[in-house]
Nucleic acid binder design. Structure first.
Lengths: 207, 207
DNA sequence: TCATATTTGCGCACTTTCGCGATAACTACA
DNA sequence: TGTAGTTATCGCGAAAGTGCGCAAATATGA
């Protein structure tokens, strides 16, 4: 604890402070659809979150929250926006620092997933958090091949395209344009897919 | 104060909470250059900021801070990022919710302005905050004519172009392309500039 | 061996975007 | 009236982007 005192002899903790929560939109693709992890508590559906603890970075709080609630590790959550409505939480003044992270489907084996296109009526402002997260993810998928690493280590162009179609159905270009945009940003493995009828597809890795 | 108690009989305020500050990059264009307002305190240069007070929204805290320190009113500050390093502040644990706002030059008549291209060594992480703000402003100026409203109520295309050149010298297209991009998004006043030699330029307003 | 299915590459037509030279229009000034 | 200076428009060539039909290549399966 700092020894600092201001000109009134007060420490920082002598002044009013809000509670700070982190809430996270955890996104994945399952069955060809973009989905979000939702938890239920006290009868209300919401995005997973927690209060920030002493000595913790925001990203660490996000990780702790998701580890405890869904056994998810190795995340790189990103900040979206701070939600600060005075009365957004009945328990008291709480700022929510919304985050997002996208993970491969298998990571969320035990989580309750809902397709983002049909999610509504989440508690607090979590519908708004989800919208920001989806918009952000889609913008990223328009610029780069699988930036969130949802595919396995190696994949074909068709695998990639199907993933992008799931993430951003309305923003994906047609066949050749998609390939011209994405292929230069991939690392060719030099190997071919096996076990398929027809000319085998080339395998790639993300760079 | 909420009557809420958790399963341990504790209120939210019984738990650890960080201090929350708002710091703002206030940007403007002066003498053809993008500048930022800098304040000096305890011998260190920094962006203006304040701690969040009870019952206050983040944007209100930003407005209070800038009103008190520079008599600036009528702002619409936007969030940038939350800086959360554990020891970013000697006085104790402080989260900084960085904001940005761009205002016409005249609003900052009494402020100390520095060209963003030469600002460095601000206290805390304020160099990082400034970089985010400049990047955000430039991205916006690539998409729309004077989105921050730095020009007077009416202006010519040349006025607009000179402003955009000041904000984003490296991102502005050539003559006709700039006009094709921006003119459709402006409202023609139907009036012409007066007092100039040569064909008078048309006057526009932002939409 | 042949059929089927798939991937890949490519040529090409079309569309869109970009930048600029040239010119007309129009004002203030001499 | 003529000149200088500025704005605005336009035609046009070049560049970039898009999408697709088609054929070659290549694997698996019968």
């Amino acid at each position: 604890m700092s020894a600092y005192r201001d000109s009134h002899g007060k420490r920082l903790i002598d002044y009013w402070r809000p509670s700070v929560a982190v809430d996270t939109a955890v996104l994945t693709v399952r069955d060809g659809r973009l989905c979000v992890a939702v938890v239920e508590k006290d009868g209300a559906r919401r995005l997973p979150g927690t209060f920030l603890h002493e000595g913790e970075l925001l990203a660490d709080a996000v990780r702790r929250s998701l580890d405890l609630k869904a056994g998810i590790r190795g995340l790189a959550p990103r900040q979206l926006h701070v939600f600060d409505a005075i009365d957004r939480d009945d328990r008291g003044r709480v700022l929510s620092i919304a985050h997002m992270v996208a993970v491969p489907d298998a990571v969320l084996a035990d989580a309750r997933l809902e397709p983002v296109s049909s999610v509504k009526d989440l508690k607090y402002d979590h519908d708004d958090i989800l919208k920001l997260a989806v918009d952000r993810l889609r913008a990223e998928y328009r610029e780069a091949p699988d930036p969130a690493g949802l595919l396995p280590d190696t994949f074909t162009l068709l695998d990639l395209r199907r993933l992008h179609e799931a993430v951003d159905p309305d923003g994906i270009p047609r066949r050749d344009t998609f390939r011209r945009l994405m292929e230069p940003k991939l690392a060719a493995t030099g190997e071919l897919e096996r076990g398929t009828v027809g000319k085998p597809a080339r395998l790639f890795r993300r760079r």
